[in-house]
Design a protein around this nucleic acid. Structure first.
Lengths: 251, 251
DNA sequence: GCCAGATTAAATGTCAGACAATAAAATGTA
DNA sequence: TACATTTTATTGTCTGACATTTAATCTGGC
């Protein structure tokens, strides 16, 4: 592991990269202890604060964990699904909010991915996941629910559907797509009528999953996607109308 | 933005979280300049190195960028698809290598996701993407290609298929799944016969995509998944046999 | 010999102050 | 005005120190 002190790149970034590469290459294995900060500083011929900045970079990616005290130090972290999952949700959320991704594009991606695991869910769903779906449907039918709570319940429902596929890798990959949509969904105001419609579609999905009827799950997801996009468009349209009216008044 | 100096959590972690939350909440917008390190140190009542550690954490997640010199400082970064993409590949790769994810589970996830965007690809593929697919197929047919180069070409081929869907969000989400598989695929040794088979299937896929024949793309991907898993199993089996023989000899 | 408590040592966490490097802005000059 | 120079604000890095935490070790009494 070596770095170039003359490079324009930060030393701490170079050191972080060197260690990260060593982890990816398998030279450092899970739970192995890194040399102490002082030793690393000597090795790379930099000061301790510089080494610390590098270690913090790695800690931010959950690649290492640190422990204080004697026999403490930095250890290669076993990257857990939950950690990776949390990071992915954050990244996906920011990606959507910062890049002018249209609702349609995000929605298309989300439902395409969800439909990918629908057949597996129909095949493998557990009673537990079915119960979650039913519970969320019930919640969504409650009057007086805020739009935000409705969206949150929607996410939980879809998470259950995704987890039903019983494939951790799939769940992880889809987590970002489903959860990152929530802020966008929160922009929609749901009328009693539209909630009713969504609950009906959710019920159809839950029924089909319970009956292990994959084609119906798929078809209903297509309907749900179409309806969601319809709702979003009407929201955009009514906003434009309001803006136009305002324009008219001031003119 | 406040922190708790008595908390057991690192101050730098707390500061990073406070700033990260501000970005996610939209209190800090893209390209906005953060206060200087000294000002942040004053604000949080900590030293500059502590602030710097916090900023490095955020930099590791591509949430901020820094610039030296007068009117320099830390700026909220517009998270680009390429940055997010690179991070996701790293995370996914480590996740698979550290968590004893079976080849079958990873493979199932990958092909489920890929099939999710196959219909869109068949509909929207550009001449450019078709050309990439053809070029990679040609490369895969070349004798003397190392197994690693074959796998790399395989990844490029599938990336082209995914990108064909013309949905950046979808491409981003699938990047991890496809690329993270590469190290696992590299464990397979491809015989001339199996390469021939794969090239044939790839050709079928390219043909079907060109003909905008979504069902055939889907069917061929299913075949390819089955064949890939068959190959992986035979590799595992032959290894077990070798191990058993060795056992027998020493016994 | 064994256990409880005190001590020690090693490591990370934090601080203070300094200097170097950089790049933009302000200033001076032809 | 155009260009060179100086100033200044900011990040990058270093040194050295102290605080805090925790495991290992030592010590004394039973």
């Amino acid at each position: 592991m070596k770095i170039d002190p003359d490079s324009a790149v930060d030393l701490s970034a170079q050191i972080a990269k060197a260690i990260r590469d060593a982890i990816i290459a398998g030279d450092l294995i899970v739970d192995q202890r890194l040399p102490s900060e002082s030793e690393l500083a000597d090795h790379f011929d930099v000061s301790r604060p510089t080494v610390r900045e590098a270690l913090k970079r790695l800690a931010a990616q959950s690649l290492i964990r640190t422990q204080r005290g004697a026999s403490g130090g930095a250890f290669v972290n076993r990257l857990r699904f939950e950690d990776a999952y949390a990071q992915q949700v954050t990244t996906s959320t920011l990606l959507l909010s910062m890049n002018a991704v249209s609702f349609d594009v995000a929605c298309e991606a989300r439902y395409a991915l969800e439909r990918a695991c629908a057949p597996l869910s129909a095949q493998r769903r557990t009673p537990d996941q079915l119960a979650t779906m039913r519970a969320e449907i019930h919640r969504q039918g409650q009057p007086g629910l805020t739009d935000e709570a409705f969206c949150a319940s929607d996410v939980t429902f879809h998470r259950a559907l995704v987890d039903g596929a019983g494939n951790k890798v799939l769940s992880y990959q889809l987590a970002g797509a489903v959860e990152a949509m929530q802020p966008l969904m929160n922009m929609i105001t749901f009328t009693a009528r539209s909630r009713e419609e969504i609950v009906a579609l959710h019920t159809d999905i839950a029924d089909a999953v319970e009956a292990q009827d994959a084609p119906t799950v798929d078809a209903t997801l297509i309907k749900l996607e179409a309806y969601t996009r319809l709702l979003a468009h009407s929201v955009v349209k009514s906003r434009e109308n309001r803006a136009a009216e305002k324009e008219h008044k001031t003119a």
